[in-house]
Structure formats: structure tokens, C-alpha cells
Design a protein around this nucleic acid. Structure first.
Lengths: 158, 158
DNA sequence: TATTGTTATACTCTATAACTATA
DNA sequence: TATAGTTATAGAGTATAACAATA
């Protein structure tokens, strides 16, 4: 295979080899974007978008955490969290309580109502999961999850 | 394992099991979002965002296609494509030529300038790829790509 | 009537920079 | 000086609905 990866088709146009199919990063973006559309539908039932639900789960896993903790855990800027936290608080899925040690910060916790929303959505999330993986063996699924973890670690490495 | 997946921590707050880690769809969204950030940097060198580059590649792979073809190939609404196509035309990475059979539609083709942009970006894209997969064996990488294809097929199934 | 592409509009996710209050 | 959170702003990607031109 030569150095130029394209076949000339006319004076000003070219056709490349279809060589993006073998790129993990590129495919992850494509698949991730399609997944988001389904998650929008699933989480929409309780009034949340995928990112908002993701933050709700992080708070549930780290009760009493601060927004700065979430920024680190989700690897997003702290300003990105403001409208998400606001939305969750508006729906009363979380509660904020001012820290006694540091009056700039607020402890975050999932409320009973927030837990209900999670419980309500989880069956659909699991059903979606089965749709995604029903052509895979249990072993293939385990391997996929391990590979995704490897990729995520590589992305977070400085 | 009982039916309730949570341990009560106080009157109004709960802590769930960390059971999203085993969900392929959820992890794909997380990883996909992180990948996009890197792709923004990589494609930004030639003035494109990840979605715009993705459409440029599709046009390169399907010279002469119409916007409706791209909507089907990328699985997005036709209105989503309008600003992307406009951006690519603005940078002279593609050219539009009115179809002689159907004067509503425009054939799309990548220009020499567009090809240069692709060539310029590809080495960085491949380097990013190696970062993502350097903790994987060749076999694991192949398996991951196959799994992603399975997932994508499941997502596009009606 | 149906289709191609556009416009208007809206929402989510992301960021940077500047700000307030507090440490 | 540094940090927690907010505000203002911007860009990207997604959609729905209504429209014009054409089939």
C-alpha cells in the first residue's frame, strides 16, 4: 500500500480509503453519540438528561460531597456543574446543606425522591443494556467493559 | 442479594450500590464524552469540530452524495447537518454542485483543500489512538472494535 | 402529496473568564 | 493568595416544526 491513501476522482475531488473504521477513538465517539440519544429518552421519564442523571448517581455514590469533588470525579469544569446541580435541586432529587467547616461549600445528598427517580429509571436502563449486548457472549461483554476501563484510564492519564 | 439496592444513611438520604460500572451503555457515554474533548483539540488544528470532521469523512467516502444520504449514514436529522455543511463549505473543504436530475439537491464532494485537512489531522488522530490502546494487546483491540460494531448495530436496529 | 434543504427555536453539554464570598 | 461556587458568554451537537422550491 502506497503512501497516499486516496484515489483521485477528478481535478478537485478525492476519495479516501475507509480507514477510520479501525480507530477506537473515532468509533467511541460515534457509538457514544448514539447511546446518548437513547439515554435521553430513558432518563427523560423522570425529567433528567443523561449528564444530569450521571451527576445524580455520583452524588448517590459520594454522599455529602462538594461540587468540586464532582468536577474531579466527572472530569468536567466546575462551571459545567452549576446548571446540573440547579436542575437536580429544583426537582428536589438532591439537597444542599452548607458546610460548617467551610461556608463557601455545600454538602450534597440524594433525597428519597431522588432515589425513587433512580429506581424508576433503572429497569429501563437495564433493558437498554440487554438490547446493546444481546448479540454478545457474557465473556465478550466482560472484555468490553474491561477495555472501556482501560480507555478511560488512558484518557485521564496526564 | 436483596431487592433494595440501597443502604439508608439518614432520614432523607440514601447511598446506592455502585452498580452502574457494569453497564455498557452508561460507560460508553462516559468514555465517549471524554474522547470528544481530545478530538476537539485534534480537529481544531484545521478549524473543525469532531462532528464536522466526521461529516467530512463521510462525504469523502461517498463522493457526490446528498445531504439526505449523510443524514441516513450519520443517523442524524437533516436539520443537524445544515450548519456542519455550511462550515465545511465556508472553509472550502467541500464543494456543492446542483444535481441535474433533481434541482432541490446538491452533490457534495471533498476538495483538494479538504483532503489536505484530512491528511494534516490523521497523524494526530493515529497518535491519539495509540495512547488509547497502548495498554491493550492487539487481540484486545480487535475484540473492542468488533464489540463496538455490535453495539452500533444494536443501536441502529429498529 | 412527498422530498430536499433551510430557518427558527430550544435544550444539553462543554469551556473560559471574571466575579463574590470565604479560607 | 487560593478556593468554592456563580454568572456571563460562547460553541458544538442534537431535535422539532414550519417553510420554499421542486418532484
Amino acid at each position: 500500500m502506497g503512501k497516499t491513501a486516496y484515489q483521485r476522482t477528478s481535478d478537485d475531488t478525492v476519495a479516501p480509503r475507509r480507514d477510520l473504521e479501525g480507530l477506537v477513538g473515532y468509533q467511541l465517539r460515534r457509538v457514544g453519540a448514539q447511546v446518548v440519544k437513547e439515554l435521553l429518552r430513558i432518563f427523560g421519564v423522570v425529567g433528567l438528561a443523561p449528564g444530569q442523571f450521571s451527576i445524580l448517581m455520583l452524588i448517590a455514590e459520594h454522599p455529602g460531597c462538594f461540587q468540586m469533588d464532582l468536577a474531579r470525579l466527572a472530569n468536567v469544569d466546575r462551571s459545567t456543574l452549576v446548571p446540573m446541580i440547579e436542575r437536580l435541586a429544583q426537582l428536589k432529587f438532591i439537597k444542599r446543606s452548607q458546610s460548617e467547616n467551610d461556608r463557601r461549600a455545600f454538602h450534597l445528598q440524594v433525597t428519597a425522591r431522588g432515589r425513587k427517580a433512580i429506581d424508576q429509571v433503572m429497569p429501563d436502563l437495564r433493558a437498554f443494556e440487554e438490547t446493546l449486548t444481546d448479540a454478545m457472549s457474557a465473556r465478550e461483554k466482560t472484555t468490553l467493559l474491561r477495555s472501556l476501563r482501560h480507555v478511560e484510564e488512558a484518557l485521564l492519564r496526564p
